[in-house]
Design a protein around this nucleic acid. Structure first.
Length: 737
DNA sequence: GCTTGCGGTATTTTT
DNA sequence: TACCGCAAGC
């Protein structure tokens, strides 16, 4: 009882209410910095300590492996003992375990592999070819994400409303995927749902086993995940869902805010606790964040009160360009380091934005870490080796076979593989099995190559049965010739060798934890870069997405340019804009003590010059929370006077509706209408991709690209009726619409 | 049949 | 700016 008492004494009133909730569904709406993780971990600890629940009954689900590890650690620390039985992990891990346990019932082979995104694309490409479809109507990438979205929404190929092309693609892709002996990422959830729907015995067994479910980041659940929970818990589940619709940033991956907004509709007897005290950010930061997110409409009207005390204003800075921005940020970082800030982060919308900051930090010898930059598990040399491993674990893995057989190059090319493919189709064998039969259509050279390859594989299989995983990987690298590919002393090869060594180490480490080969591979497939450990004194460079759930003393939210932070591409709609605003909100609320918001007057994005207008989100921040540091000294020569820029921030926000309520919907209109008048010919910054324009001859169109700057600016415009044209706005009479 | 070089195109976010 | 696909040489 002492333990319980001391647990509860560390909580505020609302937190305590959530933690000590009894049976039945509970929704905890946890605003940023309100102690969400604390509630979740304390609740688990409380349920166990109070003797209400046994640990093997608990299923705690998070979105990242890292969050899962943390949760487990924290609960164990609270309890003072390890958490046994039960499940703590991601949705995908849960689903994969389920499928591994019941492959036949899920309609899968005993051993199946997991296709990554690359492989999905390759598979789709082959499907395109087989159906003799052109990628012009639908690029492969798009098709992939449409299919992914369908799966996350639990739609079967046949159920596709009225788009035969996609439905065919989807169906053929499924066929190819299964023929390759693989499932993709989305299948884990989809097939698990189907499995539970079709096998009542399995569903019942699971449901009674995991009778206490806790879900973190509930706002990011998609239809498949929600359905999974529903199947396990039924109408009156002991389900604790914790989330915040304001931090829902995975719509593009199928996440549906409706899951959290309509929670009480799904579970009518659900209790609801709103955690409204923010313990993280000082007042101006919270005010800035609240001002922005208040403009969203799809949310509960709620507000966070600051319990972190007063603090410095939010610093705003408009740089001349991205180099200048990086310089400003680096100076700020050095200052923060001198001040002893615990945790500094630079957050941006897209990965590509990290470069200038890296360059500047390298120059100043400031240690930093890029999250999600060069992803270890996506490196070619790592994937090559993994392909071999996959073949050892699953000899019928067609995708791994395709990859492995070609590296290092053995004289087996597209043609030879095509012959094998035909043989496989004719015989019903898997691709690797068909290759083993050495189809007569192969040239004798190819035949020899295949023989050599399979001899190698057999050797390795033999080793795998007797040696440690570490040894297997090492032998594999040596005997296959993968290691020999990178022997030179240049940096590139050195890095690749290094990565291969790291893979050996990873295998050894997995073995220590008792994982076998296929367990290791599963883990690798589920692993992401976000799971890497954080070194505390290094500055963290990260996308906004990857920063969710973290906090830092000092945060630089950079690239707040119109079109970049509300990232706008063709087809972006109002819901997308709201999601972008949530991203900005997530970024701002990562900061404990100091927040900096920066934008640039011009910016090179992919070698192209972009934009020039500050993000509309900057104008949504209450001016009294801001401290504009844009210095006249830093301005490029053609910049407007500082005073007018200052007015741009302060003045622009004045005509805002005084209503603080989310109902003041004039907002979007506001940000649009606050655009400056027609772009002047020659002012590069006024033109940006996505801008709708009218030309006296070509009619209306949309700007695709902005090239060059000043009077040399050229625009690539796509006209509705005339297609793609390159124009010089200084000469062409082009008007924004 | 494989490697090399060129030109065109494209990038949001990730379990 | 970086990658990929495609075409021509070996």
């Amino acid at each position: 009882m002492d333990r319980i008492g001391s647990l509860l004494s560390r909580l505020d009133e609302d937190q305590r209410r959530a933690v000590t909730h009894g049976e039945g569904p509970l929704l905890v709406v946890a605003g940023a910095g309100s102690g969400k993780t604390r509630v979740l971990t304390y609740r688990i600890a409380w349920l166990l300590a109070a003797g209400r629940v046994r640990s093997h009954q608990i299923m705690a689900v998070t979105f990242t492996n890292k969050a899962a590890h943390e949760m487990r650690e924290r609960v164990e620390a609270l309890l003072g003992q390890p958490l046994c039985g039960g499940f703590v992990g991601t949705f995908h891990r849960f689903a994969l375990q389920l499928l591994r346990r019941h492959p036949r019932e899920a309609g899968l082979p005993e051993r199946f592999s997991i296709a990554d995104e690359d492989e999905q694309r390759k598979l789709l490409e082959s499907v395109y070819k087989r159906l003799s479809l052109s990628t012009e109507r639908l690029p492969v990438r798009q098709a992939r994400s449409r299919i992914s979205a369908a799966k996350n929404a639990l739609q079967a190929p046949g159920a596709w409303p009225g788009i035969p092309l996609l439905a065919d693609l989807y169906a053929a892709y499924e066929e190819a995927l299964r023929a390759a002996g693989a499932v993709d990422f989305d299948d884990m959830l989809l097939l698990s749902v189907r499995l539970l729907e079709q096998h009542e015995d399995i569903r019942k067994a699971l449901a009674s086993r995991f009778s206490w479910m806790l879900v973190d980041e509930y706002q990011d659940t998609n239809a498949a995940q929600a359905q999974l929970l529903w199947l396990l818990g039924g109408r009156h589940p002991n389900l604790t869902a914790v989330g915040d619709e304001d931090q829902s940033i995975y719509r593009w991956r199928g996440a549906d805010v409706a899951n959290i907004l309509d929670f009480r509709h799904t579970y009518p007897d659900a209790s609801e606790v709103i955690l409204g005290r923010n313990y993280r950010s000082v007042e101006p930061i919270l005010a800035a964040a609240a001002g922005g997110i208040g403009c969203n409409r799809r949310r509960r009207a709620k507000h966070l009160t600051s319990h972190a005390g007063p603090g410095d204003l939010v610093i705003v800075f408009q740089a001349a360009d991205e180099i200048d921005e990086a310089r400003f940020v680096a100076e700020g970082i050095e200052q923060a380091r001198r001040d002893g800030a615990a945790g500094i982060a630079v957050l941006y919308r897209t990965n590509a934005q990290s470069r200038p900051f890296e360059a500047e930090l390298v120059r100043r010898a400031v240690p930093y870490r890029v999250v999600g930059g060069a992803r270890f598990w996506e490196r070619a040399e790592v994937k090559d080796a993994l392909a071999y491993l996959r073949l050892l674990a699953n000899p019928h893995d067609a995708l791994a076979f395709r990859r492995a057989v070609g590296v290092p190059s053995r004289g087996i090319g597209a043609v030879a593989l095509e012959h094998v493919e035909e043989a496989a189709l004719a015989s019903g064998l898997s691709l690797p099995a068909a290759a083993r039969t050495l189809p007569p259509t192969l040239t004798s050279r190819a035949r020899l190559s295949f023989q050599g390859f399979f001899a190698l594989l057999d050797e390795l299989v033999l080793i795998a049965t007797q040696a440690t995983p570490e040894k297997v990987v090492r032998e594999l690298l040596e005997r296959s010739g993968l290691a020999a590919q990178y022997v030179s002393s240049d940096e590139e090869d050195r890095v690749r060798r290094d990565n291969q060594d790291q893979l050996v180490a990873a295998a050894a480490e997995a073995a220590e934890r008792g994982l076998d080969l296929s367990g290791f591979l599963d883990e690798v497939a589920l692993l992401t870069d976000a799971d890497a450990r954080v070194s505390p004194d290094a500055v963290q460079l990260s996308t906004l997405h990857a920063a969710k759930g973290l906090e830092f003393d000092t945060v630089f939210l950079v690239g707040m340019d119109d079109g970049l932070l509300p990232l706008r591409r063709e087809g972006s709609d109002a819901d997308d804009e709201e999601e972008e605003r949530r991203l900005a909100y997530v970024g701002m609320t990562r900061a404990r003590r100091r927040l900096h918001l920066t934008c640039a007057r011009q910016r090179r994005v992919n070698g192209q010059l972009l934009g020039g207008r500050p993000s509309p989100f900057l104008f949504e921040v209450p001016p009294e929370a801001l401290d504009d540091r844009s210095s006249p000294l830093r301005r490029s020569p053609d910049a407007e006077p500082a005073s007018s820029r200052r007015r741009a921030y302060r003045g622009r926000s004045e005509p805002r509706s005084p209503l603080p309520s989310p109902l003041s919907s004039g907002r979007e209109g506001d940000s649009r209408s606050s655009q400056p008048g027609p772009p002047r010919p020659g002012s590069a910054s006024a033109w940006r991709p996505g801008l709708k324009v009218r030309h006296p001859t070509f009619g209306t169109g949309v700007v695709l690209q902005v090239q060059g700057g000043g009077a040399q600016t050229r625009l690539v415009v796509y006209f509705d009726r005339f297609g793609r044209k390159t124009l010089i706005p200084a000469l062409a009479n082009l008007q924004p619409v």
